[in-house]
Nucleic acid binder design. Structure first.
Length: 108
DNA sequence: TGGGTGACCATAG
DNA sequence: ACTATGGCCACCC
């Protein structure tokens, strides 16, 4: 299909259940690019271009740190959204990240 | 057309 | 334990 990689990334991100978080590498691996997790991050960078809303706030790096918070409308919006879903954020990091981690391969 | 970029991850020193 | 570097792929100008 003409679905670009971004479309797939957006689709997976949109499938992330509320209160869960995942990492770029997990999505990258699920899509098959594996090591090139950067493409996933790049896709998120252009997420604002997508017509539909993409819960990019549910996607963090492997350390569970909100690396992309600066790319949101407001830097605090990301952790605020996560907190709204019941996820605790301390020092721009997700508490019990492993516990809230959502693996697309296992769930999908 | 081609180059440069990027919100990463893994390994090595 | 921490820091530094390399690699990797797809999209935008």
């Amino acid at each position: 299909m003409d679905e670009s990689f971004f479309e797939k990334v957006y689709d997976v991100v949109r499938l992330i259940p509320s209160g869960r978080v995942t990492s770029y590498g997990a999505i990258a691996k699920y899509l098959g690019i594996g090591k090139s997790a950067r493409v996933v991050g790049w896709a998120m960078n252009m997420s604002h271009s997508n017509e539909k809303f993409v819960p990019a706030h549910r996607v963090v790096n492997r350390n569970g740190m909100l690396t992309g918070k600066h790319h949101f409308a407001n830097e605090k919006m990301m952790e605020e959204l996560l907190q709204c879903e019941g996820i605790k954020i301390v020092d721009d990091k997700i508490v019990d990240f492993k516990k809230h981690f959502w693996e697309p391969m296992s769930e999908l």
